[in-house]
Design a binder for these strands. Structure first.
Lengths: 328, 328
DNA sequence: GGCGAAAATGGTAGCGGTACCATTTGGGGA
DNA sequence: TCCCCAAATGGTACCGCTACCATTTTCGCC
């Protein structure tokens, strides 16, 4: 089933069928309708591999995220998908499982599809990949935490360090003095938040009571029991900054089981503002970053680039917001 | 940057480079190494559009889900992605936003990429799409709820109706008499669960106190306040079956705000067994369906098909499990 | 050393579109 | 009516790779 068959049936040249599909207003109305009928009759579906090869326009965008299971990233993807679908782009998704090596491999493989843009989560560690991407001449949008070093082209996100710093400040100003830190398995970006917390506390002459970064990819890791153990080991702790909302919620539930009042005995704060976090009892203090909007903006950068052809790096800091709720 | 340049640099024919990439053991070791060096030197990345066109093997799998924001579906995708990555497939993802029309459009567009398989959520309503898919000769795997009618080829999932029926039975046998039903916005599949509940209750001479199916795509829909209103309108209700775990959790939190004991004043059950659901206070009674495994099995069907070339429909019922916890 | 079969490599054509330029058609103004 | 320019349509080559078959090389064995 090729464009030629359609052309024969419609009594036109193949190129005219191509025009009906791609630039319909360059074809006279009755010709267009005739061709359209032939397309419908034959159930013709254009071969996009051939189109890509010939036109060098793939209408593909590739995105790499650490995981699909975290709502933060699926919301980003949703935002990106919403924008791109309207422009007939297709989305190739890869999850790196928080592994640098997998990220490199996937990025190179995906380049073979000639994507018109590549969306990556955070900075690129691999020098070779960075070179390849830059040389490929495609739009590269790095999302999530903005980091001047390691940005190839454009970026949309927020300042991860500043966000954690602000949360540390919020906790201290709310009167908490013995603050702990805890992260979810695999969350590399959490390290920066830990540093920000420690740095702020140091400014005020304090230090974290504990800084729990679980080993990567430990399948036995149980945040709840780990949390309880940490508090038992550091009973003076009066607040814990959790590197994700889900972790914070689990901590709240663990407290409730133990009969520890939140925030009375222990204050808890998270990161990411899940829809859930405004509804739990108590509601959760957190850092909101509007993941959906990050995805949308990334999509807009890609589309504007494709339309204008201009190649001007665009760094958008969408900021963050400390949402103070009942848990602190 | 083409295979030709690599071939020239390595002093071989283009086809030999192709072999090094696709069937390396058909090339003598020293030739292979020479070619590999040329590939590395030139940073050559094979053009998969050309490869697809020529070989008619795209190494692409397309998947359509109702939404990416629901962890149920992102877990399915994660399972699928894990299996397919090992075989160098790429995943094109589309979300239909629970719209039949979008599903049809996306499916047809994606066919243009010549995917080797297409994974769809649930039955296909559109006759034309069904025909096109069947004619395309690709593997089609329908996931989630198994429905004999509307299955094109293979399927992996569970019996949605039976699951809801079993939950109804659980609630009745636990002694609850006035049972309500509530679904999340957009969840079409919830209708079947409502029917199953109503049918079971009818068998026992009962009827649901309410059956709340919110209007589709109402952005103002607030499950929590809606829930409270429903209970106020039907105060005799002693249990609510929620069509998703998240909805059930929101209901629990609303109860806690109102001072209604769960399950003392009101029992709550969900669907999907989120990781969260075993940790909340109270823990949530729910129906577990192992979404990740559904994705994995779908991937295995696809790969086996690709390897063996056989085309035998494969229907796998992975079942479900009523997980009784504290909330009922 | 010569033979034959298997392994390794190469030449050619074509996958299904679109870019580029050429040609034909249409229509308004002199 | 003719001319000219714009709109509409068509012919040809080529995008980068691989299927298919042909050819060359290798190697075990008599």
């Amino acid at each position: 089933m090729s464009i030629r068959k359609v052309a024969d049936l419609a009594g036109v040249a193949p190129i005219t069928v191509s025009r009906v599909i791609n630039t319909p207003d360059k074809v006279k109305t009755d010709t267009r309708e005739r061709v359209q009928r032939a397309i419908d009759r034959l159930n013709y579906v254009p071969n996009l591999a051939a189109s890509t090869l010939s036109s060098k326009r793939s209408r593909i965008v590739a995105i790499l995220v650490p995981t699909l299971s975290n709502p933060m990233f699926s919301d980003v993807i949703q935002g990106l998908a919403d924008v791109l679908r309207a422009e007939d782009y297709h989305l190739i998704i890869g999850d790196t499982r928080y592994s640098q090596a997998t990220e490199s491999t996937l990025a190179m493989e995906m380049l073979g599809r000639l994507p018109e843009a590549m969306v990556l989560t955070g900075p690129i560690g691999d020098e070779r990949v960075r070179r390849l991407l830059a040389r490929a001449g495609i739009t590269v949008v790095q999302i999530w935490d903005l980091q001047p070093s390691g940005t190839i082209d454009s970026a949309v996100g927020f300042n991860n360090y500043a966000a954690a710093h602000a949360m540390a400040r919020h906790l201290v100003e709310a009167g908490y003095k013995r603050i702990g830190f805890m992260a979810m398995v695999g969350d590399e970006r959490a390290k920066e938040r830990r540093c920000a917390l420690a740095a702020y506390l140091a400014e005020r002459g304090m230090a974290p009571t504990f800084e729990a970064l679980p080993p990567r990819f430990d399948p036995m890791y149980d945040p709840s029991s780990d949390f309880v153990r940490l508090i038992d080991q550091h009973p003076e702790t009066d607040a814990v900054f959790c590197a994700s909302d889900m972790l914070a919620h689990l901590a709240v539930f663990a407290c409730q089981r133990r009969g520890w009042a939140v925030p009375g005995r222990l204050a808890l704060a998270g990161f990411g503002d899940l829809p859930l976090s405004a509804k739990t009892v108590p509601t959760l203090t957190t850092i909101r970053v509007n993941q959906y909007e990050i995805g949308r903006r990334a999509g807009e950068i890609i589309i504007n680039r494709a339309r204008s052809g201009r190649r001007r790096p665009d760094i958008q800091d969408l900021g963050f917001e400390i949402v103070r709720r009942e848990s602190t």
